[in-house]
């Protein structure tokens, strides 16, 4: 391939590719070496495409060394239609997939639908140019096959869940209500709501990425401290401490902005909180009316 920076990959890293093939062949003796080497090449290219800068030699070697060779080999054989490989994929991963889908959906029916549909796509029911297209075409061995399948299920669930799409419409409805329907009992409410929404957004934007991600995982995704810790590579106690600190920081910054930029006093800040809470929590019927 002209201009392909990885055209000499097989030669430059022959030792690592051979070592990976040896690991893979232990579990999958029928795997052709050329097929596996090609898969490694594609894996390196897919990884490098997402980087900000081309990887150096050392980085490429480190990448190949840490590939999940056995899982990549299984994917290669499944893509090629190898029956024993497919049977292995089904018997070894099906229960884990169902369990993952159940953990995500909390619904037996939805979880089986999700997992069964995924299996169909893994097998590859669609054909293009005479070749069955499998979802496994997108697995490159950087993570384990199990974790990758869990990520795929997670994406599919998020895509299906219209709740998230609706949240956007609710946010739009809230803006409409705040802007056009002031409470007759308190016409001054709208400025408080606008001030709070503005300062809250500004304060969130000032948090560090890790603090924002941690808060989102805790509040928006309702993950446990342990789950967050594992994702962020922190201990539970650290997660708890960081969450507490971030929330306090967020509150102090919101109040500072309300005092400094909107010139609210303490009583008015308290009203801000009360109005914002009522606005977000009450009048759900009005929100629904906006959505229809």
């Amino acid at each position: 391939m002209a201009g392909d920076p990885f055209r000499d990959l097989g030669r430059e890293h022959a030792d690592l590719i051979a070592a990976a093939y040896a690991r893979a062949q232990g579990a999958h003796p029928d795997l052709p070496e050329e097929t596996f080497a090609e898969a490694i090449g594609l894996s390196v290219r897919a990884w490098a495409d997402k980087l900000d800068a081309p990887p150096g030699l050392g980085e490429i070697r480190a990448y190949i060394e840490t590939l999940h060779a056995e899982d990549l080999a299984l994917a290669c054989l499944c893509r090629a239609g190898d029956a024993p490989a497919w049977e292995k994929l089904v018997t070894e991963y099906r229960n884990a997939l169902y369990a993952a889908a159940r953990a995500i959906t909390r619904d037996e029916g939805a979880s089986r639908d999700l997992a069964d549909e995924l299996y169909a796509d893994l097998y590859g029911l669609a054909e293009r140019e005479g070749r069955r297209r499998s979802l496994l075409d997108y697995f490159h061995g950087r993570s384990s096959l199990r974790t990758w399948l869990q990520a795929v299920i997670a994406q599919r669930w998020v895509d299906r869940n219209r709740t998230f799409a609706r949240a956007e419409r609710i946010a739009a409805a809230q803006e409409t209500i705040a802007a056009t329907a002031p409470d007759p009992a308190d016409p001054s409410r709208a400025p408080y709501l606008a001030a709070f929404a503005r300062t809250f957004s500004a304060a969130v934007a000032e948090l560090s990425s890790r603090d924002r991600l941690r808060l989102n995982l805790y509040y928006a995704q309702e993950l446990t401290l342990k789950e967050i810790g594992r994702l962020m590579n922190e201990y539970e106690s650290s997660v708890s401490r960081h969450l507490l600190r971030s929330r306090k920081k967020l509150r102090h910054r919101v109040e500072e902005l309300l005092r400094r930029e909107t010139h609210l006093d303490e009583e008015q800040i308290r009203l801000c909180y009360a109005f914002a809470l009522e606005w977000w929590s009450a009048d759900l019927g009005r929100f629904f009316a906006e959505l229809r």
Binding site: T147, I153, A154, R212, L213
Partner: peptide
Amino acid sequence: FAGCAYCTAVLGAAARAGQEL
């Protein structure tokens, strides 16, 4: 991820699905 509700949702679901993180 910190600024993307979609990706955070996927991460959250993946974390729940992964019992052996």
